[in-house]
Simulated assay, not measured.
Amino acid sequence: MKKIFTILPLLFLLCACSAEQPKPPADAAQIAFDHEEFDFGHVAEGIELEHKFKIFNRGTQPLQIFKAYSTCGCTVPTLPKTLLQPGESTTLTVQLDTSMKQDQVTKTVDVSSDDPDKPLVILSLSMDVENRHKALAEHSKAKFLTDAKCINCHVLQGVGLFGEELYKSDCAMCHGDDAQGGVGPCLVRDYSDPELKKHIWQVTAYGSKRKITMPGFLADAGGPLAKEQVDSIVEYLSHLEQKK
């Protein structure tokens, strides 16, 4: 009996020691970054920013990076090397355009690879963009909204939509979800005034006179919308006034 009680503590000690020992590295690729988040701090509107992330292969097998991408056209990642041998590294460069942005902004870059433990890593870039109404650069005209790098976020989401859905896709980002204003002015007004209703339609269709912050969304003005879609936006806004 004494032998049993003597052996049990020894077994417990052996188990504890073996549990504390680190597991040997898996025979696989292992992606790692020097950092996964970066804050640019306070920046001006209408400028190009750049930041670099270093990517490592800490594993024992080659690491295949499938893609580094962003859903926003203003955020462009460039990856010169997609296959890393064990111990190798590469640099991911991200360029970001602050045009038509203001206040706190966060953009992300997704990096996918064949790392079995971390197949997707989301890198984050944040900044505090100066209010563009205070310092709008000449090159930051409203046409940027329909340029190739901005069209996915500012235009394509509203294709085929009408009324409230179209407003929330193409207009809310500047005028607010409830149309109470944001980057753009408040659009909750008295639409019983036919002149006001006509003015809102004209600006939505053809843009503001100075074309600084508001582009023309009508197809005739180079925009993506049909006349019926512009009509539906103004009709939706007039209903907001009635609910007020």
Results as ranks from 00 to 15, higher is better:
Arg189Phe: 08
Asp39Thr: 11
Phe56Val: 02
Asp97Ile: 04
Ile212Asn: 05
Met1Phe: 13
Ala148Ser: 14
Thr98Trp: 04
Thr90Met: 04
Phe66Met: 13
Asp115Ser: 11
Asn131Leu: 05
Phe144Pro: 00
Ile65Met: 00
Phe66Lys: 08
Asp178Gly: 05
Ala19Pro: 01
His42Asn: 12
Ala16Asp: 07
Val155Met: 11
Ala68Val: 07
Glu130Cys: 01
Ala44Trp: 04
Gln61Val: 02
Leu225Met: 09
Val76Cys: 09
Glu50Ser: 15
Ala44Gly: 04
Lys23Met: 10
Met100Ala: 15
Gln229Tyr: 03
Phe162Arg: 07
Asp117Arg: 11
Lys23Phe: 11
Ile4Gly: 04
Val234Pro: 02
His139Trp: 12
Glu50Val: 06
Leu49Cys: 04
Thr108Asp: 06
Asp220Gly: 07
Ala179Gly: 01
Pro22Trp: 08
Glu88Trp: 10
Gln95Leu: 11
His51Tyr: 13
Glu138Leu: 10
Thr108Ala: 08
Gln157Gly: 15
Ala32Gly: 14
Ala142Trp: 01
Thr78Asp: 15
Ala219Cys: 03
Ser113Tyr: 05
Lys67Met: 10
Gln85Ala: 15
Glu130Tyr: 05
Leu156Asn: 15
Leu8Trp: 09
Lys197Tyr: 05
Asp170Asn: 14
Asp115Asn: 10
Asp170Ser: 09
Tyr236Val: 00
Lys2Val: 11
Thr60Ala: 09
Ala219Gly: 01
Pro9Ala: 13
Glu241Phe: 12
